[in-house]
């Protein structure tokens, strides 16, 4: 559910699938995902770094040196080399999309599915198991839970799997009752049967 740009994603898919082939060959596909997510999270937090990477006035050579200095040794060689290739092709601005596209690719290959769970209080382990099982049964894939605690849910839980949303929250129930009452009142007023004294007894 990250922000994506159609055209960027199309370009990014080429790079990410190449990265997947290299990493999977070296048995580092999972590790690379962790590193990329880490990098993506850093980019989301530090937009200036993203701006630096995509700024055309910065020379590719300068960036190349900086990337070596920053990441070599900290991240795996596969990732740093990939970054250098992106830099060489002037595609570092795609980094965020490459990370997202790699994640989707990883999900697809490993038959994983991300399940977003929103609850008012943190989940217990047994509940996690139940959700994971239910999601696995529904999608035929292994569920990776992404949990969010949100007091506005009030109670129950909201689960997102792919495009589908399963809302079992108290806030949804309250909203539904509110809508129904409003609808009923509006119909009765316009239908000429307002809330008169004793009208409900019948």
């Amino acid at each position: 559910m990250a922000k994506v740009n159609e055209q960027e994603m199309a370009l990014a898919r080429v790079y990410s699938s190449a990265m997947w082939d290299v990493a999977e060959g070296a048995g580092q596909a999972d590790a690379l995902l962790a590193e990329l997510s880490d990098l993506a999270a850093y980019l989301d937090k530090n937009t200036e770094f993203g701006a630096f990477l995509s700024n055309p006035t910065v020379e590719a050579d300068t960036r190349k040196k900086l990337l070596e200095k920053l990441f070599r040794g900290r991240y795996s060689d596969t990732l740093v080399d990939s970054l250098q290739v992106l830099n060489g092709k002037d595609r570092l601005n795609l980094l965020r999309s490459v990370a997202e596209s790699y994640r989707l690719l990883h999900e697809e290959h490993r038959r994983h599915v991300e399940v977003f769970v929103r609850t008012a209080v943190p989940l217990t382990d047994s509940l996690r198991g139940v959700i994971r099982d239910a999601a696995a049964k529904r999608t035929g894939r292994q569920a990776i839970l992404v949990e969010t605690v949100d007091p506005s849910v009030i109670g129950g839980l909201i689960v997102h799997i792919g495009d589908e949303k399963y809302d079992m929250s108290v806030s949804m129930l309250l909203r539904a009752v509110y809508d129904k009452l409003l609808d009923r009142a509006s119909r009765e007023i316009h239908g000429g049967r307002a809330f008169r004294e004793g009208s409900l007894a019948a």
Binding site: H160, D163, E164, K165, Y166, D167, M168, M172, L173, A176, V177, K180
Partner: peptide
Amino acid sequence: YRTEVDIAEV
């Protein structure tokens, strides 16, 4: 009001 799961594609 029957307690139902609100399923929607979003």
